[in-house]
Design a protein around this nucleic acid. Sequence first.
DNA 1: GGACGCTCATATAC
DNA 2: CGTATATGAGCGTC
Length: 641
Amino acid sequence: MTSHIPPFNQSPTLIPKPEPLSDSDPQAPIPPSSIFNFNTTVEAPLEPNLLCREFNNVAETFRSAFAQRLKRHEDVTVLDSLTGAIVPVQEEEEPVPISYSLNDPSPSLVTRKPKPQERSSELVRITDVGPEGERQFREVVRKTRMIYDSLRIFLILDEMHEEFGMARRRGRPDSKAASMMKERFLWLNRDKRIVGSIPGVQVGDIFFFRLELCVMGLHGQTQAGIDYLIGSRSSNGEPIATSVIVSGGYEDDDDQGDVIIYTGHGGQDKLGRQAEHQKLEGGNLAMERSMYYGIEVRVIRGFKYENSVSSKVYVYDGLFRIVDSWFDVGKSGFGVFKFRLERIEGQVEMGTSVLKFAKTLKTNPMSVRPSGYISFDISNRKENAPVYLFNDIDNDQEPLYYEYLANTSFPRGILFQQSDNASGCNCINGCSSGCLCEMKNGGEFAYDYNGNLIRLRPLIHECGPACKCPPTCRNRVTQKGLRSRLEVFRSVETGWGVRSLDILHAGAFICEYVGVALTREQANILTMNGDTLVYPARFSSARWKAWGDLSQVFPDYEPPSYPQIPPVDFAMDVSKMRNVACYISHSTDSNVIVQLVLHDHNNLMFPRVMLFAAENIPPMTELSLDYGVSDEWSPKLAICD
DNA sequence: GGACGCTCATATAC
DNA sequence: CGTATATGAGCGTC
């Protein structure tokens, strides 16, 4: 039993309907007259035609209304005579960010609390950023996510530290991190309301908290499912929806992937049960108006995922169009608004589809990929988790021909040269602040309580055989081996590659880079025979040096200083024995980083080479490592010169 | 501008 | 383990 939404209380003839958007090209070329040039925070040395951050207005409606705004306010003027671009004049006073101190992250001591940065009402669509622009926006997004996560983890550790003795309620580090960043003006896209995709955020990107979506500008509501620009601040007085979260909060939702029947909000009681009729107001009205104007919405899906960080992840699934809306009787018997969302074509596969696919691959791989498997575990049970070998493009089976080595083997005799095995901790209940092993790590453990790397450092000393702490000690991570399901696969672009079937949270341990370690002298001899050697010293993690740097949040932040270690001067022979890491592709834009770790011996000259996720990596995304070789030189291994 | 209410969060207790 | 409850942040509304 359905009935149509009553006509909107305004004459449609006064509202010019925008050109219908093409399905194949959701971001049609911008007419020059509609190019707006805004000041943004991104300093981008782009090519001239890409230089201006070009935002085109959403529709004819808003374009004309913008002119009215010009008259109403005097903070906008046409400045650029060449392009006719409209450039907003800077705010009269630059707001002063709140000051935090590392020792007291609470803002209570701050005398003057600046007013929070208001949400803009400027509705724009950002188009034609170009590959170089996209790369730079991506970098900004990546950096911001890094700060958010580092700050969140810092707050957790800080709280743990304080909690000794007193049973204080745990706060919400996810929300605390977000508000601190907001006060420091570190939220992205606050100076505009973006319709369509957010520059630097890609379909398939995974987030762990609702507030993280707020920080990115993907979705500004902390709980509400529909985000929209309110009518009173919109240029034509009508609300416009910009994004929705599909998270299973309404029983009348029907999520079929590319088509979603989305329920409007309202009418629920405190327990989330539908107890009243919904009304055509707020987000519901905005959805209806977005449908009328053909304006696309971003869709973010909540996805149940057993995870050490949270029990749920949020996946950006791309742009959808609202094609229908009606008033319906829900399962509860109360009236609800429903919106039919259809995914705009021409976008990459949805992140949630990939998540579901990867999940099936872990439990029932043949059901979704009946052919192509060469092995269901090339490690032959030497790893904790099976390592798949998959090739559906040619007959190459190369990885089968190497003996699988789960850990690097070091030359006999070198391991105990500096042996003073007495140096272990006595933490029978697991290491905690102030213990010997924390001291060995420069007074700060390298991992958080989920076993994620907090920041890069020259060397990590994990607890070892001489320590009395249990295997669950937070200072034992890489020694416990694989934590995620990996797959070696064949691709046209990169040859052999590696991907994970699990989500890899930034800082998650992936695997050791394994080979037969050789001293410099041994390596020199072998090289003459033309063997393939990997030099750990060449691996580059330069791009991730700033990881964990909170100086933008705490002005007095100083990166911790760690004792220097002698340069790594050994090679690894992977010509006969190797592990999964050997198949990771090279990229200067890598998503995997190298961290040296000691755990089973203490010879500083021969640390183990451990690989960690440098950022949140969705399942099925190819892993890459910067081998420190030039780009045109494509082979994966750094061969000795 | 400020108080209030609403919301497809989140953590914890039972 | 699901469910109930407590504590919320941000934003829209009035």
